[in-house]
Computed example of a mutant assay.
Amino acid sequence: MFQSLILSLFLYFPEDKSEYIPAAISFAIFFVACIFTMRFIIKISKREAEKAKELEERIEQNEATQKNS
């Protein structure tokens, strides 16, 4: 009895399927926003990786010139 009460709070399947339309629209909006956010994060990550690689190369060059002198 208690389990069916708990499940009835979370499971709601409306008879009128048009009630799914607002949920589908909000899902689509958030899904597109998630895709753009992930692409933005990947772009920034690649940019930061390039900066780190350049910094590493400069440090290696400085160490090499200090060893030679």
Rank of each mutant, 00 (worst) to 15 (best):
I25F: 01
S26H: 07
S26K: 10
F27G: 02
F27N: 06
F27T: 07
F27D: 05
A28T: 03
A28M: 02
A28H: 02
A28N: 03
A28P: 00
I29M: 02
I29T: 04
F30V: 12
F30K: 15
F30L: 13
F30P: 02
F30G: 07
F30H: 14
F31D: 03
F31R: 05
F31M: 04
F31P: 00
V32Q: 09
V32D: 04
V32N: 07
V32T: 09
V32F: 06
V32S: 06
V32K: 13
A33T: 04
A33Y: 05
A33V: 06
A33M: 09
C34E: 12
I35E: 05
I35K: 14
I35H: 04
I35Q: 07
I35M: 08
I35L: 13
F36A: 14
F36H: 10
T37F: 10
T37A: 08
M38T: 10
M38L: 09
M38V: 11
M38G: 14
M38C: 10
R39L: 13
F40T: 11
F40P: 02
F40H: 11
I41H: 10
I42H: 08
I42T: 11
I42L: 13
I42Q: 09
I42R: 12
K43E: 13
K43M: 12
K43G: 10
K43P: 04
K43V: 12
I44K: 11
I44C: 12
I44L: 15
I44T: 15
I44F: 09
S45M: 15
K46M: 10
R47V: 04
R47S: 08
R47N: 06
R47T: 06
E50K: 10
E50D: 13
E50T: 09
K51Y: 12
K51P: 01
K51T: 08
A52D: 05
A52Q: 07
K53W: 04
K53C: 03
K53Y: 05
K53S: 04
K53T: 03
K53L: 05
K53H: 06
K53R: 11
E54D: 02
E54T: 01
E54P: 00
E54C: 00
L55C: 08
L55S: 10
E56C: 01
E57L: 01
E57A: 02
E57S: 01
R58I: 04
I59S: 00
I59A: 01
I59E: 00
I59W: 00
E60L: 03
E60A: 03
Q61M: 07
Q61Y: 03
Q61V: 01
E63C: 11
E63G: 08
E63Q: 11
E63T: 06
E63L: 13
A64D: 07
A64E: 08
